[in-house]
């Protein structure tokens, strides 16, 4: 893990949201953090170059901009795990897929511009693997106050 100087820490902790929509946003945001425009700009450049930030900018809501999204899980027999990974991941609509320690040991997110594809992909995977796909669409989203503190 990269060690962060006070400027970097102020940026990570203080600027995970609320970056101003103004013509000189680094100047305006810097004021609140006690940094000059160039200090903030260089700090953000350093953090993205070092990889401490994935990026700096808008966090888009995949569901609103990308059509349908659905979490799904399968209980995969261990001796078939690699084969099933290959069959599931072969679908372009699978955005991520994690192995997790549970009887339901494969958890993946299906994402498509066309929401109708979600159901079709689930049916295709069930047919290709002979295993039940448990769809877990979110029925309610709760506001999260999450911020990484460094």
């Amino acid at each position: 893990m990269a060690s962060l100087d006070p400027t970097a820490r102020a940026i990570v902790n203080g600027l995970q949201g609320g970056f101003p929509l103004t013509p000189r946003p680094f100047r305006d945001a810097g004021r609140a953090l006690g940094l000059t425009e160039d200090e903030l700009l260089e700090g953000v450049q350093d953090l993205t170059t070092s990889g401490a930030l994935s990026r700096f900018g808008p966090l888009w809501n995949a569901e609103q901009v990308g059509g349908g999204v659905c979490l799904a899980a399968i209980a995969v027999p261990l001796q078939r795990f690699d084969e099933v990974v290959e069959k599931v991941n072969a679908h372009a609509e699978i955005a991520h897929n994690y192995e997790r320690a549970h009887a339901l040991n494969m958890w993946f997110v299906i994402s498509s511009d066309d929401p109708r594809r979600i159901e079709q992909v689930i049916a295709e995977i069930e047919r290709e693997t002979g295993l039940a796909v448990h769809a877990m669409p979110k029925t309610r989203e709760f506001f999260v106050g999450f911020k990484v503190e460094v």
Partner: peptide, 14 residues
Amino acid sequence: AIRRIGAIPNHYAL
């Protein structure tokens, strides 16, 4: 459609 604008931390790198 935009959740927020700012620093998007790489949890793993941090």
